[in-house]
């Protein structure tokens, strides 16, 4: 007879098997992020921005249109003033040039960067066509900054989001489901230790997380040439710290929850502020200073800082020490509390 393996090993193995044999779970973990990356990559293509300018068809518009077209950097259309205004309202054009006597009026929204760019480029083209001299010779030298594209910036955010979802759902929901099925009660009737069980749930989730995250990054690299930057080991460390944090929190949310509905309510409640504030789709630094302390106190904010630091900027261990310590600390505290409050039934 083969001697039995340790309970923690058997428990982890069981979770891994259950996971691999669940096609729906595989879709949500691998398929969904990949679809999201592809969709976002298509929606935000990697192109130099081209301003779109409408010229209102009033006397003098031909000169303006010709001047704008001469540089070749601007998309120019001539429309009636009403049509042009309507197109600007619906953001189909960035600027409307309205001839007025010998000059022009620029219609634009200064809060939109695109409008600003269009206005500056259009003005420069029009002035130059009228003979404005350039007092100094300048030339542009273009370079491609890694991580400067939106998709590059977005990928680490998606990784962070995946770690958060995987931890909170993957641990919390699984645990509550086991409780509903009375499987936890059945385990309780054996000499298996509570800490073995909780560590196994946590361990199996962390074990899933690392290949999951590298899959997302690899897809990003293959499809969009996104940077994989930084040291893989350091990246693995960040992923590990993030997983510990969110698995711990998932455990805590589920430690007494008796119904699946309650579990999903609690999980969504916990995720909501991080979805909005933690810089998945846009930078967390955009929020006003007044709420920055709160934004920075959210674990996902710190995880995203660390991920972007390593992936985009090639930061080292000392640069991301604070986020790492915070993530592991939050996870550790959550685990300790869960261990204390945990109920089998």
């Amino acid at each position: 007879m083969k001697s039995p393996r340790s309970p923690i090993f058997e428990l982890i193995l069981s979770r891994l098997r259950e996971f691999w044999r669940e096609p729906e779970a595989l879709f949500w973990v691998y398929g969904f992020p990949i679809l999201l990356i592809v969709a976002l990559g298509l929606a935000f293509p990697d192109e130099a921005p081209r301003p779109a300018v409408d010229v209102a068809s009033l006397p003098g518009h031909e000169t303006a249109a010709a001047a704008l077209r001469s540089g070749g950097d601007i998309d120019v259309v001539v429309n009636s003033l009403e049509v042009a205004r309507a197109r600007h309202r619906s953001e189909r054009t960035d600027l409307v040039v309205i001839p007025e006597g010998e000059g022009y009026v620029y219609l634009y929204d200064p809060s939109r960067p695109e409008d600003h760019l269009a206005k500056v480029m259009a003005d420069s083209a029009i002035q130059r066509a009228k003979g404005r001299p350039d007092p100094v010779m300048t030339r542009g030298e273009t370079v491609k900054l890694p991580g400067s594209r939106y998709i590059d910036w977005l990928l680490p955010g998606l990784v962070g989001m995946n770690i958060m979802g995987g931890g909170l759902w993957g641990v919390g929901f699984v645990l509550v489901d086991m409780r509903v099925r009375k499987l936890l009660k059945r385990f309780r009737a054996t000499p298996m230790r509570r800490s073995d069980f909780l560590l196994a749930i946590l361990g199996s989730r962390v074990a899933f997380m690392i290949p999951e995250v590298f899959t997302i990054l690899l897809i990003g690299k293959l499809l969009f040439g996104a940077p994989l930057g930084g040291a893989p080991l350091l990246l693995a460390l960040v992923i590990l710290a993030g997983s510990i944090c969110f698995c711990g929190l998932g455990l805590l949310l589920a430690c007494r929850t008796e119904r699946l509905e309650t579990a999903s309510g609690l999980t969504n409640l916990a995720m909501m502020p991080m979805w909005i504030l933690s810089g998945i789709f846009f930078s967390a630094e955009r929020f006003p200073d007044a709420i920055q302390p709160f934004v920075r106190a959210l674990p996902l904010t710190q995880l995203n800082f660390a991920l972007r630091g390593v992936i985009l900027e090639g930061q080292g261990l000392s640069d991301i020490a604070f986020p790492l310590v915070m993530l592991v600390g939050v996870g550790g505290i959550a685990f300790a509390l869960a261990l204390r409050w945990f109920r089998w039934t």
Partner: peptide, 11 residues
């Protein structure tokens, strides 16, 4: 697999 899991809990 189920029985192996349960067996691992006992000395």
């Amino acid at each position: 697999e189920t029985l192996r899991l349960f067996r691992s809990f006992y000395r």
